[in-house]
Design a protein around this nucleic acid. Structure first.
Lengths: 160, 160
DNA sequence: AGGTGGCGGTTCGAATTTGAACTGTCGGTA
DNA sequence: TACCGACAGTTCAAATTCGAACCGCCACCT
């Protein structure tokens, strides 16, 4: 291994912007969602994924992979959402080990209630701030980075 | 307020990519840093900020603003770093309330030790994955979003 | 001087997150 | 059939994070 290739000013700026901007965005979303709908940003995200899934249900592992938290963290959050009646657990007939999280009717309506405000904030703080080219470059670049990370770990390993 | 302007597929892709990619990146950095240098990603970031600051010191509030955590969270982390001998607290002669966090010699050498591996990972997972244009678009766009958020809260308020 | 509002940090308890066992089950193999 | 390693989720304790309440102190105003 050769000498370290340090980051150029531009590269450092990109990386720093990614970190701090995401952190701030996340914080704002979290506050807004909690205030308006009583959901954390993570919970909103979980409900959102479920709503988009066929049958409105996903395996725990898929969900954990999608939101990129730890397995035990997801168990906790699904527990919370289940207590709140927004999600139900269902076991798979074919494989006793598997557990599906299913979006309930109440979960669905809560999501619908929260969505407009959340989307408006995403627009205000991010989407409408970027030019079309910036938006596409961001989507393309980060998607690619994401794909590579998934490929190199197959969404297992660090998620356990 | 009119009807909600939902996100287009492209917009949703950008936002989702930002969230999941950042989450994954953060997770990887964290693991790598903990394994190689016994530092969390956040701690690395704090040390890094201090190293770049004049006199290698910053006010608690500045630091909290920079890393975008809560005030109490920073108090905790500086406590940890202080116990580890990587950072020292110093009070300001002019204003007794103010506290400076100062990078110690040991903190500096620990940072130097951790940096090459960390930078290599930032390159591998992000910087070297993006084209020059993507990198610049990302830096410009997110910087702008970040500036606007700071402007609208002046880095106080939600940080307390 | 005396009073008052706000700032800078810390403390506290509650909520969340993590990683390392652990449980029960599946799939392939002898 | 009986076994063995791997897998899906959960449980548990420890670490981190958050928000709200708090403390002392500064700046300003009278």
């Amino acid at each position: 291994m050769g000498r370290t290739r340090w980051l150029s000013a531009e590269e450092k700026r990109a990386w720093t912007a990614l970190r701090t901007t995401y952190a701030r965005l996340n914080q704002r979303m979290d506050q807004s969602l909690k205030r308006d709908a009583g959901l954390s940003h993570l919970q909103y995200e979980i409900l959102s994924r479920l709503a988009a899934a066929p049958e409105r249900e996903l395996r725990m592992a898929e969900l954990a992979c999608a939101v990129a938290g730890s397995k035990s963290g997801l168990t906790y959050q699904i527990g919370q959402l289940e207590q709140a009646g927004l999600v139900a657990r269902r076991t798979c007939p074919g494989d006793v080990r598997a557990v599906y999280a299913v979006l309930t009717e109440e979960g669905s309506s809560r999501l619908l209630r929260a969505a407009p405000g959340h989307v408006a904030l995403v627009r205000e703080l991010l989407v409408d701030v970027l030019s079309a080219e910036q938006l596409r470059a961001l989507a393309d670049g980060l998607d690619e980075a994401n794909r590579r990370m998934q490929a190199s770990e197959d969404c297992g390993g660090s998620l356990g």
